[in-house]
């Protein structure tokens, strides 16, 4: 993998009003990915969506008793891959235990992780030190 072209670190309070900001950053970055050979409009929307879902998930799992809590989002763009990490300080959850949606009996919840898994190339959720890291990768070429 080549050296990073762009690296972006954003730290926000655990409040949903910042989802718009995070999503829009993803969308703008997506529009600028000249190396992506596929549908860049769709990629831009998908990055908006994936960042919105991942950040909302981190906010949801944050410790409610600590209003000073923050979510850190790191985005690194290489020539051939985009890497997103979302760090939270909550209890964490089991990514593998999240069921796929039942399309014949749709539920109101549980589609966020499905979007991330479906639209990106790899997703992991691991404990690193005192926080959890949702790491998302998308190949660009």
């Amino acid at each position: 993998m080549n050296a990073a072209q762009i690296q972006l670190d954003v730290i926000i309070p655990t409040q949903t009003k910042y989802l718009d900001l995070i999503g829009c950053i993803g969308e703008r970055l997506g529009h600028g990915l000249d190396q992506f050979s596929g549908d860049r409009e769709a990629l831009a929307y998908h990055l908006n969506l994936v960042l919105t879902e991942a950040t909302a998930n981190a906010i949801k799992h944050a410790n409610d008793s600590k209003p000073e809590e923050t979510v850190r989002i790191s985005i690194v763009i290489h020539d051939d891959e985009l890497n997103i990490k979302v760090f939270d300080h909550g209890q964490g959850f089991d990514l593998e235990a999240v069921p796929a949606p039942d399309f014949n009996n749709p539920k109101e919840n549980g589609m966020g992780i499905y979007f991330i898994k479906t639209l990106m190339d790899s997703v992991t959720y691991t404990r690193q030190g005192d926080c959890n890291v949702l790491e998302i990768k998308k190949r660009l070429v």
Binding site: N48, T52, E108, M111, Y114
Partner: peptide, 13 residues
């Protein structure tokens, strides 16, 4: 022009 999983969930509800 943008909807996430919670928005779809609200409409489904």
């Amino acid at each position: 022009r943008f909807i996430d999983s919670s928005g779809l969930g609200a409409l489904l509800s």
